[in-house]
Structures are given as structure tokens and as C-alpha cells.
């Protein structure tokens, strides 16, 4: 079994780096995408609230594999239109497509986490903000968001682990992360111990 490690050392290292970079970048961008969606879910009852609800239900209801295929094969279908707009460089490469799908997916889950942590802030905090006459934006930025972030951190840690497992799916759209390298080495050696 050791020869499987040593012979393909570089490939395994590439795979680990790809998996790690995909996970970290997806969590990072997903968090910043999730904040407005989570706030819209927690506070708005109008159009924005409905849009956020639709987004969250869509990306939590579909399997990640379907979302990956939708972005990679589905949006790849529109290559002439995307070339005209100048966005084709994103969708041409499988790595960017995988990252985009992962970001959209994890943003939906993180938005629900942020919504939960915003809604469990006690009313006394809101009353204190009003008593101090803070503007809504200042109150959100200085008081509510730090409290919510601290509450959400364990759940986002969980989400990080789940995302790490989910990045193995991008191997299906030919991104050579850890799982992808395993498939490639299996195709060369036909040795099941690779998995």
C-alpha cells in the first residue's frame, strides 16, 4: 500500500491543496454572501424576505451534485452569450464552476445559521440599542452582528466540516481534488486500495 502513497506523492499533495483551497475559499465567500441573505430572512417580510426564502429553499432543497451539474454543464451551455458578456473565463474552468456552486450552496446553509442566531438575540439588546439612539446600521454593525457571529460560530464550524466532505463531489466535474486524484490513480493502477 505504501507504494501507492510514494509513487503518486505529488498528485496526492496537489489533491490535498485543491481540497483545502476550495473549502477555505468557499466558506469565506459563502459567509459574505450569506450575511445579507440571513438578515433578509430574519427581518424582512416583503419582497426581499420572499426572495431570500426562495434562494435558501432552492439551494438547500437541491442535491449538491445537481447544483454542480447545473453550474458546470448547464451554464456551460450558454458559452456564446457568456463570451459576449466577458464572463466565460469563470465557466470555462471546472475549478471555478465548482467553487461557484459550493459558494452558492454553503451561503444558503450559512444564511439559515445566521438567521437563527439573529433571531435568538434577546429583546433587551434591541431595547438598549433604541435607548442609546443608535442608527439601525450602527446597531447592526457594532452590536448585533458580533453577537450573532459569536452564537453562529459552532454551527459554522460544523458547516466547515460538511463542506470539506462536500468538496469531494467536485471530482465528478473533473476537478482534481483529493477524490479526483484518487479516481485518476485508480484509472491508472486499477487498484481499489487507492480509495
Amino acid at each position: 500500500m505504501l507504494d501507492l502513497w510514494l509513487n503518486y506523492r505529488d498528485l496526492w499533495l496537489d489533491g490535498v491543496i485543491t481540497t483545502a483551497s476550495l473549502t477555505v475559499l468557499a466558506i469565506f465567500f459563502g459567509f459574505f454572501l450569506a450575511i445579507p441573505i440571513g438578515v433578509a430572512r430574519a427581518k424582512s417580510s416583503g419582497v426581499l424576505g420572499w426572495l431570500a426564502l426562495g434562494y435558501v429553499n432552492l439551494f438547500r432543497g437541491m442535491p449538491l451534485l445537481v447544483q454542480l451539474f447545473l453550474v458546470y454543464y448547464g451554464l456551460g451551455q450558454f458559452n456564446s452569450e457568456l463570451r459576449a458578456v466577458g464572463l466565460w473565463w469563470i465557466f470555462r474552468d471546472a475549478w471555478y464552476c465548482g467553487l461557484l456552486a459550493l459558494v452558492l450552496n454553503t451561503a444558503a446553509y450559512q444564511a439559515e445559521i445566521i438567521r437563527g442566531s439573529l433571531q435568538t438575540i434577546p429583546a433587551s439588546v434591541h431595547e438598549t440599542n433604541a435607548a442609546l439612539n443608535l442608527t439601525r446600521w450602527t446597531a447592526f454593525r457594532r452590536v448585533l452582528l458580533p453577537i450573532a457571529f459569536a452564537k453562529a460560530l459552532p454551527a459554522i464550524g460544523n458547516e466547515f466540516i460538511l463542506l470539506l466532505k462536500a468538496t469531494s463531489l467536485v471530482a465528478i466535474i473533473t476537478v482534481f481534488d483529493l477524490m479526483g486524484q484518487a479516481r485518476f490513480i485508480f484509472s491508472e493502477t486499477l487498484d481499489l486500495r487507492v480509495y
Binding site: L58, G61, M62, V66, L70, G74, L75, Q77
Partner: peptide, 16 residues
């Protein structure tokens, strides 16, 4: 691809 993946995405969302 876009149409069909969207359709089965809708199927899954409806099931959920």
C-alpha cells in the same frame, strides 16, 4: 443541460 437540470432541481425542491 440547463433546462433538464433545472427541471430535476425543481423535482427535488418539491420533494423536500
Amino acid at each position: 443541460p440547463f433546462f433538464f437540470y433545472l427541471v430535476i432541481g425543481a423535482f427535488y425542491v418539491a420533494l423536500v
